[in-house]
Amino acid sequence: MRIVLDALCMEEKETAHTYLKEKLRLPDYYGGNLDALYDCLTDEEEMEIEVENREQAGKYFLRIWNVLLDAAEENEGLQLIG
């Protein structure tokens, strides 16, 4: 599954996690925080995530990006693009 995320939609915590839950089709029990994001991403079997507008995004997105990188390192089925 390939998903395109817009980093500009992830600049504030609450809106970022709502956006991620919808775009990544995260489970209902998703906790809406960085630890829960990591847990869900490391459980995924196959996923390709492309991130647009990374260079223009704010500070909170950088925290999300680090979680994405860590999850991709842990989970061989998760591939990051961009």
Rank of each mutant, 00 (worst) to 15 (best):
L34D: 10
C9I: 01
Y60F: 12
G32I: 02
V4P: 02
K21D: 09
E14R: 11
I3H: 01
N66E: 15
T15H: 14
D35I: 13
G58N: 04
P27N: 06
T18M: 09
K23M: 15
E52V: 10
K13N: 06
E48H: 07
E46I: 05
L5S: 03
Q56C: 08
G82T: 06
L34Y: 01
K13H: 11
Q79K: 15
G77R: 06
G58F: 06
I49K: 00
G31S: 12
N66M: 14
A72M: 14
A57K: 01
D6L: 03
Y38T: 03
L69H: 08
Y38I: 01
D35V: 13
G77H: 06
Y38F: 15
D70G: 14
M1N: 13
N66P: 01
F61A: 01
E46K: 11
H17K: 09
R63V: 02
A71N: 05
L24D: 08
Q79T: 15
N33S: 08
T42F: 04
D35S: 14
M10L: 07
E22H: 12
W65S: 09
N75W: 09
I3D: 06
D39R: 11
I81Q: 11
L78P: 09
H17S: 03
L62Q: 12
L80N: 06
G82Y: 05
A7F: 00
E44N: 07
R25P: 02
P27H: 03
D39V: 10
L80D: 01
R54W: 02
W65T: 00
Y29R: 11
R2T: 10
C40H: 04
Y60K: 01
L69A: 07
L20V: 05
E45V: 08
D70L: 15
A36T: 05
L34G: 03
L34I: 05
E22I: 11
Q56E: 14
F61P: 00
D39L: 12
V67D: 00
E22M: 10
E44S: 13
M47W: 07
D6C: 04
C40T: 11
V67Y: 01
A7K: 00
K21M: 15
G31N: 10
E48N: 04
L41A: 05
E50K: 08
L20S: 06
L34T: 03
Y30S: 07
R54I: 05
A57L: 03
G58C: 04
E44F: 13
R2M: 10
E12A: 10
V67L: 02
N53Q: 09
K13A: 12
D70H: 14
L5Y: 05
N33Q: 03
E73V: 10
L68E: 00
A71G: 05
G58D: 08
I49F: 02
G77L: 04
Q79P: 02
N75F: 10
G82N: 12
E45T: 10
R54V: 07
L68R: 00
E52Y: 06
D6I: 02
W65K: 12
A57H: 01
L24F: 12
D28Y: 11
E44P: 00
H17A: 05
L5H: 04
G32D: 06
E48T: 11
N66Q: 15
L8I: 05
Y38M: 12
E50R: 08
L37R: 00
L69E: 13
K21I: 04
Y30H: 11
A57M: 02
M47I: 12
G58K: 07
Q79L: 14
F61Y: 15
N53V: 02
R25Q: 15
A36E: 12
